[in-house]
Amino acid sequence: MIASIAFRNFKALRSTRVALAPFNLVIGPNGSGKTSLIEAVMRLKTLSKLPVAEGEPRQKSGGPEIEFTFNAPHDGLTARLGCISDSVCDTLRISPAHAPGWPALRADLGGLRSYALQHEAMAGGARRDDGAELSPSGHNLAAVLAHLRDAAPAEYAALTAELLRIVPEFVGLEVRERAGEVDFGLRLAEGGTVPADELSQGSLYLVAVLALAFDPEPPCVLCIEEIDRGFHPRSLREVRDALYRLSHPQAHGLSRRPVQIITTSHSPYFIDLFRDHPDEVIISEKHGRAAQFARLSDRADLADLLGGSTLGDLWFSGILGGVPEER
């Protein structure tokens, strides 16, 4: 979907470009541009809904600029965001102007989604009619489950089966409706149901990730911050698999269009899972107040390094970069 993003003077991303793969795990210290990358994608979504700007840019020279290129069938198209400041981007220009593929690309861009899931938000109930799409915090998770149960029973059954396989202490997913409100809980093998507001944080995050993974109409690009949050290290393989279900549907026997994933993590254990796919890891490196992106697979000595250490430990050690600066 998105082939690359080039940044100029956007927050810490002073001058850097990142090529995106179907799956992208961005790792790096705090303040190194991981969230800014996702923010840029969401600004593209916002501005793609507005009329495309024409004529010469009115931004001051040297102001923030973000340029996107795309994969086939939109590979000849460039979208540039013009920004007044780091916090205000107000114009979108496409090149070539009036490109015939723009309406179709614009429709896809309108469906981009970004998540910073919050367990406190997910634990509450939701309005029954608010379940078409999981909100950025996941606050309507119960409604999404209810919607999925009714609108896509096969996907709901698959989600439930997957959930119960991963957390075998539960034997059922219960979605309950009352007067236009909906909540959910997990039924215990020994009897009784644990309501969402009493579930562990990890269980809530797992339900949300699975709700995204089994969405019958997923977006073309999905961004998730801190994907490892709340999970036991041994469960992270399941989380990665859920995301691969989106980004590599053919590997899971699905025929639908792949979803491009951009996610971030600070967990060496999650990073370990990408030993066989270093091309999916982006390291954000911060020097002073400026940050740059680099693909892990571009590192020529990576295979030799992996002979003596795990990928997560290599990252933590600082050998791969992407660690906080120290005085």
Partner: peptide
Amino acid sequence: RAQLKLRVYGTDRPSLPH
């Protein structure tokens, strides 16, 4: 090693149950 994995799992990104 990647080819061996592909021959066993049929994909280079198998899910855990698969």
